[in-house]
Each structure stands twice: as C-alpha cells, then as structure tokens.
Design a protein around this nucleic acid. Structure first.
Lengths: 208, 208
DNA sequence: GAATGTATGTTAATTTTGTAACATATTTTG
DNA sequence: CAAAATATGTTACAAAATTAACATACATTC
C-alpha cells in the first residue's frame, strides 16, 4: 500500500528536502547508519519529529541500528524525484545573479538552470557557470523555446514586478525572488521570497 | 497596559518583520492608509491573520479607513527596535559574499554590517560596499574588538563548520549560513540556513 | 539461549497556529 | 441628522503540527 504524495503534509515534504541534503552529507562522510536523534540534531528538530516524518512516508529502520543511509536516501529520492524535473531561468546577471549561478552549480536533483537573462548587453552572450546569458528582450521567446517553468529573480527592486509579470505571462509557475519587494501575481503562480535583509533582522530578534 | 515582547508569538514577530518591509514599500508609493486585506495580499496571508497580529501587538486602526501607514510603521518599528542593534560580520568575500554586501546595503534597521573576512589576501584590505575586509586570521581579535554578535557565512562548504566554531567561540550568538552544510554548534547559538538550492527544490515541489 | 538495553513505530495529548464569525465603531450619504 | 455600508476588534472554533509516551522489535552480551 503505497502512500500518495498528496497525503504527505507540506511541512513534512519540506523537511524531506532537508533530510536528503543531510543524507548526502552523511554519505560523503562515509556513514552507513544514522539514528533519528542524529538526523534531528542536524536538521534542528527533534527525534520524534524525524521518526514521525519517516513513518509518514512509510520508511522503516532497524530498532538498534537506526536507518540505513543508503536505503533512506533512495526512498526520499524516489519520493522527491517522481515529479518531472524543473527547468529554471535566472533573470538578472549582476553580482548576486552570477553568485547564485556559481553557488547553486548545475547539479541540483530535479532542477536544471537553463538560461540567464540581463538587460545589460555587456553581460549577454557570455556563459556564466555553464549557463548562457541572453538579452532580456528575448525573455519570452527563450522561455517558451526552452520550456522554462521556474524563474529566479535577481534584478533590482524597481524591475522585479515587471519581469515577474512577463515570466508569468509565458507560463512560468514558480518564482524565487531575491528582490526586496512583494510581487503581485495571479493565483497559481507560487512565489518564494529570499529576503536576506529580513533574514538578518529575524536572527537579530531571536538572539536577543 | 503595554504588552511585553515575550507575549508575542514568534510567528507573529516574524510576520511583523514582513509587515514592516511592506509598510516601507507602501510609504514609498505614497500610500496613507492600508486595509487588512491589502496587507494580507502583499504578505501572502489572510485579512483575519493581519488583524489578529495587529490585535496582538495592540495596534488600532479606523473601521472605515483601515490602518494609518505612518502610525503602524511607527508602532512596528518601536516593537522591533527595542532591542539593541545587532553588529554583524560577514565571512567569505567571494562572489556570493560580495553580492550579499552589495545587495543588503548598509541601512538595515537594527542591523549593521561592520566587517568582512576572507582567507585570500588579495581580497583583504579593500573596502567592499562600505565594509572593510580583513584577513581571516584576524577573525577572533576583530570580532571582539568590534563587538560583533552576528555572523554571515558565505564560505565554501568545507570551511563552514570551522569558521562557525571560531565565531561561536568568541561570543557570536547568531549565524546566517549560506553554505549548504549543516552546522553543529553549542546550544545558545541560533543558526539560520539559506540554502538556495533547497529553496529551488521546494518551489519545484509546490509547482507540480 | 535468555535477558537487557536501546531505538524504532505508533498512538495519544498538548500546544500552537490559523480561520471563521460576529458585534462594534466610524464615515459617508441621502 | 439618521441610516447604511464597510472594516475593524474580539471571541470562539477548527485544524494542524509538535511533543510526549509507550509498546514492540532487534542486537548484543552474559
């Protein structure tokens, strides 16, 4: 009896992404088994929560050895990989945009960055971290041509809204926004903000 | 009867940070009043939640005009600003580190970036986006000297753990980590991860 | 081979968070 | 000046998520 993806709470799904990253790390360290309390420590939550999450996805471990890193990785990978791989474009090849390209690399499971765009013609035509940079006036045609469905926004705050609308207009369904402005988009477009300044302020709060 | 900060749920506090950012945006647009359902749309939540949050902090608006942008800004600012301003250091002045410095700027409310560090001597001695870059061997002395209590980690994954420990050892109580590895730190040190790759994967999940 | 200790799998309870509904107040309009 | 419409402030409700607790199973050791 296989549990459908829809039955898994979103919060658990999100933690599964974290667990996968941690399992990669454990694999690279040569670990073979891992206990729930160890995963919990790494993921900044509790052993009970880890066990509960793994129960939800129907994974089983050994009562004395814990979970097999290899088997658990395979299980989580299978769950997270059953959607078609996402095709991503980055808009804004300035400092931040180029840093993101270099930092994220090009081997994220289930995610491929296929194109970059910039309004500055000096930056276009080049290949940055393996990703070709096009002029932003070709945005619509290239997005359609390449089958892009996700966008990363690393443009100035003043341009974010316009670019977001143009992306949404040609079928992009998810946007990761680094510009510190709220985006107003039609329902059905998922927006996630990474507001670094806000993150800093939040940490400052917690540390008081 | 003033409500103490401890009485305000953390989730509400976090949303307050968002509201403040949105209010800045509304101010820049020249808006004088704002309704709960407008704030909700911008913050990606519901009008009921906005009203509830504002009730919790004891803010009052007009039944017909909504909330005064100016008064609400002042109120939220007062709540968020009653802690002493945080003093921040960035470690790792590579592509991402420099992009962060340039992007965040130097006028975050309650947060000041006072120093950057890098192991590459080529990058040290310079001033990047108004922040002086020191060699990483001076990390401990400069952190103490400048009274740093927060750190931003933009170093390679292989170095993150070591740097984090060195920061924690000299009194840093909060770390914003951009390296895609989990940090193991003593209790009392708040760690927040910004894992861009993971964020992308999460969006890819939601957009299926 | 039995007993013990430890970590899992699961259920239950608590806590927290979010949602809905309704009475109140205020402004505007007739 | 009264009435109507609308958005707030609050309380009660519902849902979700986290935490705790406990029984079960497995490996190790005596």
């Amino acid at each position: 009896m296989k549990r459908a993806k829809a039955d898994i709470p979103l919060k658990t799904m999100e933690r599964l992404v974290t667990y996968r990253r941690l399992l990669q790390y454990l694999t690279s360290e040569g670990r073979v088994f891992v206990f729930s309390h160890e995963l919990a420590k790494l993921a900044n939550n509790t052993a009970a929560q880890v066990r509960r999450d793994l129960m939800i996805i129907g994974h089983h471990g050994s009562p004395t050895r814990g979970y097999s890193v290899r088997l658990l990785t395979a299980h989580v990978d299978r769950l997270l990989a059953d959607h078609q791989p996402s095709r991503v474009a980055l808009v804004g090849a300035g400092n931040l945009g180029r840093a993101i390209l270099a930092h994220v690399g090009f081997q994220l499971p289930g995610v491929t960055i296929l194109a970059a765009f910039d309004s500055d013609e000096e930056r276009t035509g080049r290949v940055i971290a393996g990703v070709r940079c096009y002029p932003v006036r070709e945005l619509e045609s290239r997005v359609v041509e390449l089958g892009i469905n996700l966008g990363i926004l690393a443009v100035p705050a003043t341009e974010a809204q316009e670019i977001a609308e143009r992306l949404a207009a040609v079928g992009v369904v998810g946007i990761l926004n680094f510009a510190p402005v709220p985006l107003r988009l039609p329902n059905g477009v998922v927006v996630d903000e990474i507001d670094i300044g806000m993150k800093l302020e939040r940490i400052a709060l917690c540390c008081q």
